[in-house]
Design a protein around this nucleic acid. Structure first.
Lengths: 254, 254
DNA sequence: ATTGGTAACCTTATGCCATAAAGAGTTACC
DNA sequence: GGTAACTCTTTATGGCATAAGGTTACCAAT
C-alpha cells in the first residue's frame, strides 16, 4: 500500500545516474568472459515498462528480469539493488521533459508550459509519485528540469530568496496535483467505476457515517457543492487556478 | 525503499475512521467470549510509535503486535489489514493539529499558523510523507484540517474557484517542504553526518562526476551559491519565502 | 591448441513480509 | 453443564530482496 524511501546507496546511484548516456558499451578491450547480455539502460527501460503497465506494486526485480528473459538475480550484475534502479527510472522518466521552454519573454506562458509538461510526465508515469520526494537524488534530468524552470522564471526578475521559494512551491504544487489526478484515474480503471460514481459512493458513505457532516464542516461542504460535479473537470480547474495563484504571487511586488 | 499505495479497502477504512472516538467500549451486553485485550486505538498508537521511532520501513504487523505483547495475527481481529491501519495512523496524527486558528481577521497570520502547524506535524511523524497523497482517505481529522484552512482563508474573500486552487497549492507546498526537511534530518541522524557535511559530500561527488556542472546548469549553480550554506537555514528560508509567494498570490486581485 | 582467469549468469538459501486457515483457549449466557 | 461467541496463536502459503556460492563461456596468453 505504500512505498518507503531513502534506503538507496546515494553514492552508487549518483555514479550510475551521471554516466554519460552513450558511454555504456565501454572500452571492450582486454576484457574476458562472455559478452554482457544486458546493460543498465535496458534494465531501466524494462523497469519503466513494468511500472507503467502494472503499477509500482508490481515492480519487482523478478518482474523486471522476466521481461528481459532473465532471472531477478541477473540484474544485480548491472544495478546495485532495487532502490538504485528506482532512482535511475525516475531520472530517465524526467528526461522526457522538453529541454527548452519556448516562451520568449512571457514568463507566465513559459512557466505554465513547464508545469504542464511536468504534470503530464507524472501522469504518464504515475509510479513516479510514489518515489519519495523526500530524497533528492540529483540526477541529470532532475537538475535539468530544475534549470528549465529557472530559465522560464528568469524574466520575472525575482531576487534569489524569493526565487527559491517560488521554485519549491511550483514543483510541489505540480507533483501534488498530479498525484490527485493519477489516483482519480486509477480508481476509475481499477474498480471499473467511473470517477464521478466513485466520489458519489464515497460521499454517500460519508453522509451515512457522519450525518452531521454539513454542520461540522460547513465551509468544506459549501466549497464542494459549488464545484463542478465532474471530478476530472474539477482537477483541471484546480490545477489552473492553483497555478494562477502561484503566478500572481510571483508577479506580486513581494 | 518505497511505499506503494491505494490497495486499502476504502470502505472499511472509512467505517473505522468515523467511529466516534469514545464509543470504542461498545454495548458489551449479550457478548460472550474473552474480553478484548486490545482495541483499535491502542493498535493505532502502537503503529505510530513504531513508525515514529523506527521509520516506515520498520512498520510491520509483527512489530506493532510485539509492541503490544501479541502476535501479528492478533491485530487482524481489530483491523482489516495493514493498509487500513496506515489510514488510521495518518488520520490520528493529523488530529494533533490545533482545532482553531486564532488570528482574528488577519488571514495571513492565520494561514501561516496553519501551515506551520501542519509542517511541524509532518516533521513529528515523517512517515506520513510516505503515505501516498494520491489517495484521499477522508478521515475526520484530515477534513477538520481542511476546514481549518478554509476558516483561516475566509477573510481573504476568495471566490470558490480561486479558493480551491489556493487550498491545493498551500497543502501540497507544506507537504513537499516537510518532505525535504525530514529527509535532511534523517540523513543527518542515519549516517551520523551533519546536514552540511552530507551536502558537501554530495556536491563534491557531483562536481567529480559532472565537471561541466556549472556550464550545464548555470542558473542552478548561481542560485545554490547565493544561498545560506547551512541546509537547515535554507529549508527554513525556503518555507518562509515560498509561503510568502503563495500568500501574495492569494492577496492579489487575480 | 590448450589452459587459466574472469566476467556474466544462475541456483540455492535466508530471512523477511502480509495474511489465509484452522484450531486452541476463554468467557458469558442459557 | 453446555454451547456459542469471541480472542488469540500456530501453521502454512506465496511473495519479496538479496547474500553466497557455483557454473559456464569466452578471451588471452602460453
Amino acid at each position: 500500500m505504500v512505498v518507503y524511501a531513502g534506503q538507496g546507496d546515494a553514492h552508487r546511484s549518483l555514479s550510475l545516474l551521471w554516466r554519460t548516456p552513450g558511454a555504456e558499451p565501454a572500452p571492450r578491450t582486454g576484457r574476458s568472459g562472455p559478452k554482457p547480455g544486458l546493460n543498465v539502460d535496458s534494465i531501466v527501460s524494462a523497469g519503466i515498462a513494468v511500472a507503467d503497465s502494472q503499477g509500482m506494486a508490481a515492480l519487482s526485480m523478478r518482474a523486471v528480469g522476466e521481461r528481459l528473459g532473465r532471472t531477478a538475480m541477473a540484474l544485480y550484475t548491472y544495478v546495485p539493488g532495487k532502490a538504485e534502479l528506482l532512482d535511475l527510472m525516475h531520472d530517465r522518466a524526467l528526461a522526457e521533459l522538453p529541454a527548452e521552454s519556448d516562451g520568449d519573454g512571457d514568463w507566465r506562458a513559459a512557466v505554465t508550459a513547464w508545469a504542464e509538461a511536468l504534470h503530464a510526465c507524472y501522469l504518464r508515469h504515475p509510479w513516479m509519485l510514489q518515489v519519495s520526494q523526500a530524497r533528492p537524488v540529483l540526477g541529470p534530468a532532475e537538475l535539468a528540469a530544475m534549470e528549465g524552470l529557472l530559465r522560464a522564471l528568469r524574466p520575472a526578475g525575482l531576487p534569489a530568496r524569493r526565487l527559491r521559494g517560488a521554485v519549491g512551491a511550483l514543483w510541489q504544487f505540480v507533483r501534488g496535483m498530479a498525484g490527485v489526478a493519477a489516483e482519480a484515474r486509477d480508481a476509475a480503471t481499477a474498480t471499473g467505476v467511473a470517477d464521478a460514481d466513485w466520489w458519489t459512493a464515497r460521499s454517500a458513505q460519508l453522509a451515512e457515517l457522519a450525518p452531521d457532516f454539513a454542520d461540522r464542516f460547513p465551509l468544506l461542504t459549501a466549497l464542494e457543492r459549488s464545484g463542478d460535479p465532474d471530478p476530472q473537470a474539477r482537477d483541471r480547474e484546480g490545477f489552473r487556478s492553483g497555478l494562477a495563484v502561484l503566478l500572481d504571487g510571483i508577479a506580486a511586488p513581494g
